[in-house]
Every structure is written in C-alpha cells, then in structure tokens.
Design a protein around this nucleic acid. Structure first.
Lengths: 119, 119
DNA sequence: TCGCTATATAACGATATAACAAATTAAATT
DNA sequence: AATTTAATTTGTTATATCGTTATATAGCGA
C-alpha cells in the first residue's frame, strides 16, 4: 500500500552535527593509549594510579586520556577517598572493540594464509 | 575439569601492535568528512567526482580521505574508464556507524527528556 | 593546620593531520 | 601525438593532539 518500490529513493543522510558527534566518539577510540586503558578496564575496575602503573605511561597523560574517554561517555569514574575508580560505562565499547578485533584477526589470518604453501 | 573458577584470572590484554592496528581503523572513522563519504556510499556507489560534488569538498581532499578509507579496508574502488567507482567494501562499517548513531540518539533523547516538564 | 598522597590542570615542544592550491599522472578521444 | 577529463600526489599553512614537566587542588591523617 504505502511503500512504493522506488529505486530513486535513497537513504537519508546524516546532518553535519550528527557527523561531528559520531566522529568525536570514534576519535576517542583512535589512540592506542586510550585503547590500552579501555582494554585494562575490560578486565576489572582500576584506580587512576593503578592504570598509570599498568599502562606504563605518565600520570598526567593517563589522566588526560581518561578525561577524553569520560567525555565520550565510555568510561565512568567514582571517587572513593583519595582514589578515583574507573570503569567501562558503556557496554557498546566492548562490542565495538570486539567487532574490530575479530575483523582484523580475520584479515590477518587471510593474509597469513596467502603465504602458506599451496596444498 | 579444566576450567577452574578463579577470580584472579584476568582477560588477556591486547598486544601493542594490535592496539595500534585497532586505533588506526577507528581513526579512519574519526573525521566528519570521511564519515560523510561513507554515509553517501551507504546509499549507492559514487564516482570520486560525484563524491566531490555531493560532499561539497575539494577534489584533492576527497581523494585523500578516500585513500585513508581504502587503506583501512573500508572502501573499495573500481576503475571504469576515466572514472573510479567507490563502494563500501566492509559491511562492518555500516554496523559500526549504526551502533554509534543509535547510541547517540538514545543519549540525546535522554538529555532532551531531562528538559521536559515532569508529568 | 601541616604534610602526604592521588588526581587534575596548565604550559610547552614535537609531531600529526586537515584543507587548499598547484603540479602530475592516467585514461580516453580526436 | 595532442587534448581533455578524472584522479592522485605534492607542497604549504593552520590547527590539533600526544607526551612531558611543573603546578594546583582535594582528601586524609597526624
């Protein structure tokens, strides 16, 4: 009835502001150090200090990267006395990283296979 | 039998090289202009020239961004005479963007709701 | 209040990236 | 071969971002 089959009708495009917001989120995931912090937080909660030690980076650096992840809504923080406990606030982060890692593994394995002697 | 329940055992961490590769992929998605190109390509195939026109950006700029997306395995290209047709090479791109957009929509709606008069 | 610890912020240099313009390559047509 | 069109490559400039050092803030105990 209502839905005419029309090949001319294209999916609507995202607005400029939407594109910028999406880009901002992906940018939060575009640094190895931030991914390392997220990767650690996927194990368990860490304090900022523990993340500094575990990541092997400087304190100021870790703090700044955590702020980026927090602003992107990916990491949450809970103050407890002197320490600040950090945790993954958005389960989507796990999904995104999982997807990306699976895809990369597939690609790498395919490439590796290209070097295997043919049967 | 083999799997002992042990809260001390943590999920293994990704290697440095893996982190860098993942970061590189996400970085490809971290620019509004590249997202705009992908968004256009989600509708249909475009030539580079059509993308230049549709995106409103310069030719060199579009070309460079497309190269980034190609190197990330997200966009494929097929030469046909003088033109080069571009297309989404990895369906994961659609999923990733879809996930991110849904999430942002939810968040925005939640924030908007916070300004609604209480019932 | 004083000092100690945990974290955040500011300022800085080095590097990376986007946008634009100009030069170059590549394919098709005459 | 010369011309035209399509796209890439190459500078160049402006801006953004990373990592580091130094400083500031906040909570806790003596």
């Amino acid at each position: 009835m209502s839905k005419k089959k029309n090949p001319e009708v294209l999916k609507p495009l995202l607005s400029d502001t939407a594109l910028e917001l999406v880009a901002l989120r992906f940018r939060a995931l575009s640094e190895p150090m931030r991914l390392r912090l997220l990767n650690l937080l996927m194990q368990k909660e860490y304090t900022v200090g523990q993340l500094v030690e575990a990541s092997g980076s400087g304190q100021a650096n870790v703090s700044k990267h955590l702020a980026v992840l927090r602003d992107a809504g990916m990491v949450g923080m809970r103050k407890e006395g002197l320490s600040t406990w950090c945790y993954i606030a958005d389960p989507m982060v796990n999904e995104l990283c999982e997807m990306m890692c699976c895809r990369l593994r597939e690609e790498m394995e395919a490439k590796a296979l290209a070097f295997d002697p043919k049967i």
